[in-house]
Design a protein around this nucleic acid. Structure first.
Lengths: 349, 349
DNA sequence: AGACCTAACGCAAACGTTTTCGTGTTAAAA
DNA sequence: TTTTAACACGAAAACGTTTGCGTTAGGTCT
């Protein structure tokens, strides 16, 4: 078990100084051709690679970016990571992941762990608990220490940093308009409580679409799910709520759901009630998930282009990291909006 | 934009030496109560945290583990990461992810990037391309440098390292036996080409189950898919193959598929051919996926307990990292087998 | 021959820690 | 009063790099 070889060991073996070895390997003109050859050959033989940690310490730059997400077992988030990773690797960075599990304290702890030198900047999506408590001190503290943050999807307007979001409002509006165009007269909305910003925006899009088409929104058609429960395990509870919605509003002929699971549950309930999709009732969901594609009938959804979001976020962050020229010239932050796309499948006409 | 405060700065402000500050913060008996109080108060005020990189360099230990997986947008792998992350965090480690994208060269590059000091050890699942080429030099080189590796799921017998696997053989055998018990007389197998070890083992389980029940396996009932194609995009090709299988073997009343997608496609094709599930034909898949649960009908599957695999792998690795006492006493490697579990849903009787 | 240049290399500092080993001061013991 | 020991602290090395600058040797010029 031979440890990795260091400059010092090479220097000793070749009977030169450490600096000579270093310079020789970097092809410095200060070093004679002879010595360079000798050193480089030796280094190659022993497969020398500079120690990253030492470099990080010296350069005060780790070439690593941290990504903090609420959960990883989720198609959207893992796709974002994939995007981040691709760009990061291409630009010479590593990616270190932290999971908040939708918990405020885990988010804080994770950020503190990474902020102590391990990484150069953050890419993150805020946990639900943090959004509820509206305690954002850890973001501000991190940034005040000169560590840039790029937020994606779940963001907060008050915080000054780069952001990558999807146009939830427009995406939803388009989806609902599609339902209207397709002849739906009574469109239900299945959404989350308002503290999740994306849920709120998608609700607004729904309302606006109705409004523009002179349809009056009805409160009884809007189902706000309390998503603090984990509906992956309490599926039946969710379905029960939806069933009641359907039963007390028999004229419903269209459903817009703010995520995949709600939409799938709606389809399941509809089928159970003997409704045909898409003839009796049409359904559209919001997400990039794998369920939509493989459901029966397959689900029409609003795609968020998660991969692209990750790529964009990574590029924004690395750009900022590598443009240190901006000393004192009033830092600028951008918000990139990723266009949504309506992917039509079998759940709509 | 104030940089993070260092020991040196504290020392300067308080007019003591760096060592005094360090000792005071670590509550050394060498330092007077007075000084400790002063230093600790100051450190707290300025929110001092030791620089991780400096610590890593000094201790030659990064407290970070690297995980390399073929792809992250995959329920199984993201669940494994989740398990790794949980254990790692609890035991004071960070997790840095590398994606091989099933490519040999990306696997090698990623490992080289991380092996230069960034991490203390690897957790990985081998890429398909590597399995095909059977080139494992990067694993051996990494380990010969004293960096431990824990492999999971896709492993190779020849390589001496800790492993966490699922009993693919027994899991498959159980699944097929379930079909037999449920009355299936003609059971088809949808699997991958043999170079993916798990595909091979699952095929063997299928054969053994038939054998034990005096059923003779028929070659025409075994469909080996060439999974170098990405069937997430070429779904129709996959379905076509399955359709031909069904059409040329009309007596098929049971299907065992080695993964979720194959199983779902089989169900889809069956439905298309007017077969009722589970009455005309029963289907079992192999995986932990989210599709199985939400499909209609929901799919009976062999669960791999991915989360548990991740947790086990992380514990194995960290145990090894923290037991350096084993100098020269013939390192021992263990292979932990995670029990599979048959989760019965609607696709079987 | 003296002054000067240049090639080729080494020294040392720096990054931020921790820790071993001094060292100076003071109070207690002789 | 002198010796000793406890106490409180600082200097320096070490982890592995990179780099500015100093140094040496030899050669060139006048």
């Amino acid at each position: 078990m031979k440890r990795k070889i260091t400059l010092k060991q090479i220097a000793k073996e070749l009977d030169v100084s450490i600096s000579t070895v270093s310079k020789a390997l970097r092809n410095s003109v200060e070093i004679s051709e002879d010595t360079k050859q000798k050193v480089q050959a030796f280094a190659k033989l022993y497969n020398y690679r500079p120690n990253n940690i030492a470099l990080s310490l010296k350069n005060r730059k780790t070439n690593t970016i941290g990504i903090i997400i609420p959960e990883i077992v989720h198609h959207f988030f893992s796709k974002v990571i994939s995007g981040v990773e691709t760009v990061a690797n291409n630009r010479g960075y590593n990616v270190i992941v932290g999971l908040s599990n939708e918990s405020f304290s885990k988010e804080v702890i994770n950020m503190e762990m990474l902020a102590n030198g391990s990484i150069d900047g953050f890419i993150l999506s805020i946990s639900k608990e943090t959004l509820q408590q509206q305690d954002y001190h850890h973001f501000n503290e991190t940034m005040s220490q000169g560590m840039p943050i790029v937020m994606f999807d779940r963001v907060i307007a008050d915080i000054k940093c780069d952001k990558v979001i999807v146009d939830d409002y427009k995406g939803s509006k388009n989806a609902v308009e599609k339902l209207i165009t397709n002849g739906c007269k009574s469109i239900a909305l299945i959404t989350t409580k308002d503290y999740v910003s994306v849920g709120k925006l998608r609700t607004q899009g729904y309302l606006e679409a109705l409004h523009e088409h002179k349809m009056t929104p009805k409160a009884e058609l809007i189902l706000k799910i309390d998503d603090t429960l984990d509906y992956e395990v309490h599926l039946d509870a969710l379905e029960l709520e939806i069933e009641q919605l359907f039963k007390s509003n028999k004229k419903i002929d269209g459903v817009f759901a703010v995520n995949e699971l709600y939409a799938l549950s709606a389809m399941k309930v509809a089928r159970k009630l003997g409704l045909d999709i898409p003839n009796d009732i049409q359904v559209i969901g919001f997400t990039d998930g794998v369920l939509s594609k493989h459901a029966t009938p397959s689900l029409t959804t609003v795609s968020q282009h998660a991969q692209q979001m990750g790529e964009t976020a990574a590029n924004l962050l690395i750009d900022k990291l590598e443009n240190e020229f901006d000393d004192e010239k009033e830092e600028e932050f951008q918000t990139v909006v990723i266009a949504t796309e309506l992917i039509e499948r079998e759940s709509t006409k």
